[in-house]
Design a protein around this nucleic acid. Sequence first.
DNA 1: ACTATTTACGCAAACGATGTAGTAATATTA
DNA 2: TAATATTACTACATCGTTTGCGTAAATAGT
Lengths: 333, 333
Amino acid sequence: MAAVNLKQLAKMLNLSISTVSKALRDSHEIGDATKLRVLAKAKEMDYTPNPFASGLRRNKSKTIAVVVPEVANNYFALAINGIERIAQENDYHVLIYLTHEDIEKEKGIMKHLENKRVDGVLMSVTMNTNNQTHLSDFQQKGIPIVFFDRICHEIETAKVTTDDYISGINATKHLIENECKDIAFLSLGEDISIMQKRKSGYLEELHKNNMEAKTERIIKCGNDDEINYDLVKKLLSGKNKPDGIFASVEKLAITTYQVCRELNINIPKDVKIICFSNLETASLLNPSLSTITQPAYNIGKTAAEVMFKYLDKNKTYIPNENIVLQSTLHIRE
Amino acid sequence: MAAVNLKQLAKMLNLSISTVSKALRDSHEIGDATKLRVLAKAKEMDYTPNPFASGLRRNKSKTIAVVVPEVANNYFALAINGIERIAQENDYHVLIYLTHEDIEKEKGIMKHLENKRVDGVLMSVTMNTNNQTHLSDFQQKGIPIVFFDRICHEIETAKVTTDDYISGINATKHLIENECKDIAFLSLGEDISIMQKRKSGYLEELHKNNMEAKTERIIKCGNDDEINYDLVKKLLSGKNKPDGIFASVEKLAITTYQVCRELNINIPKDVKIICFSNLETASLLNPSLSTITQPAYNIGKTAAEVMFKYLDKNKTYIPNENIVLQSTLHIRE
DNA sequence: ACTATTTACGCAAACGATGTAGTAATATTA
DNA sequence: TAATATTACTACATCGTTTGCGTAAATAGT
């Protein structure tokens, strides 16, 4: 019932605690016969070391934290999937924290993690994270961070992203090739770098095609779905409406679909939509949705791999490194 | 940089370690003036107790584990959302483990958790979990489990589910009311209780309507999406195909949609579909999908609340309790 | 004024695992 | 054969907190 500990094992075997400990860690100081005896008894007794004791002693938690805005989101869910896979392979545990796009919550979570509860943090910042002192403070405590997707440029560490600028260009190009003359960009927050890159790609492609970039076509959406709904509704109401919409994130595309249905706007005849998305059902939507799909699973996997590369070496300092994975454009509709 | 500990705080304050510790925990043994002094210094120095040390000493991890088959799944993602919310409120941390419907992985994970790393486990078992010795063994170690959705009847503890039997009846009734004469049931695994309940509801409603329940109309799908695809394709190929499909889980409905598209089967004219789902985009599918939507967020939230109700009281034994939340039928198409 | 009680603090022993330093006993070398 | 090295183990301090117990001083009770 109660878990056995080293002391009890040692008593059963008539050995000292340290001998048992060393035998279990396969130390060269212990004879082979003894090792076998210890191993057998440990298995028999179902012994596993107390993680708090060894964590305290070795100052290692065998745990990483994942800090993301949401989990009920295909992108982050897949990324977590990739992270968890690599963590299991490395015999690590994964703590999960959701910020719900709230920077204050993000700060609070990082404060909570400062006390060596985790060996490292994988994170995607909030859409509102425009100040990074809580992150650099955190790094100062000697715990490494690796960013994925929603990165923070100002922090020196490894960052795993996708080619957002190129994807922004490609998405816009796709709309232009389909004869859109007036393309709106639905942005989620303004501060985070992926938004800026996606928007830059959008603006660049408009410029290349001598199309005017009107400020009123850049809609700054936020975390509140109802406000977003109203913003999109306003955009698509009246006669002066765009004929193409580039939604920077999945949920804004869904909102757009809902608005179009309410306003009886035909997709793709009246307005064409493209968005960043990992929606499995994109092709089954009415009509099917063209997407830029990020390799979410691999992003998570890669971020975790980079983290473990340093954790294995006991390095808490991770130098700047930009790892860029390719998104793929899925043309549908 | 390096985190301060009690010893350093004590030295700065010219107090003993125990006084500082007690002051921070607001013990009655310590004078008010001293408490204030300690608190101020602790805040100034940004002190937080080392979780491993206190975990070791108090035999409390302040951590719960969530063990689920998948996270890239709207249902589980929402449930995790609810769990995380309650955990944060209780100042607890959430570890996440994915079984990928693999019972061996589930066993391995439980083994890993036996050593007091967590104070409790919230779980939804694998579709293949037909044997529960690893779960009862786990309970024997004195760590409570609370099941949600995919429960394990044989284990005595609290279980949070939805009214799957009623929902199975309602879903089937809905198809019958829409003039389906030959309804197939797509099951995921056979062993888990929610499947049995949903199927019972299906069978009961067929019976009530004097409709024959043919074994070949109950399709046993599994974890491999390609095999599932072929199974559904076989079901819908040829002339003797059903005119209604009740998919027991979301992904099987998506598979069905995909098959219908390939086979050029018109939904809902040729075949009507209903499924258990938390898909946000269900209403935007082509055509929109009727669903039984489970209150996933609340299920997670409730499961966590039950867990903390016992953890707060330091009770590791949770008596049998069935908490049933209502699913809602969303008629669409 | 003398004992009883309360207040406010310190001492030291846990919690369980790890690793350094030490020690017998045996083996190797000059 | 004496000096040295190796082997196989044990004792003990340590990680940072918590907590039961002890105790001096202050306060209260008679």
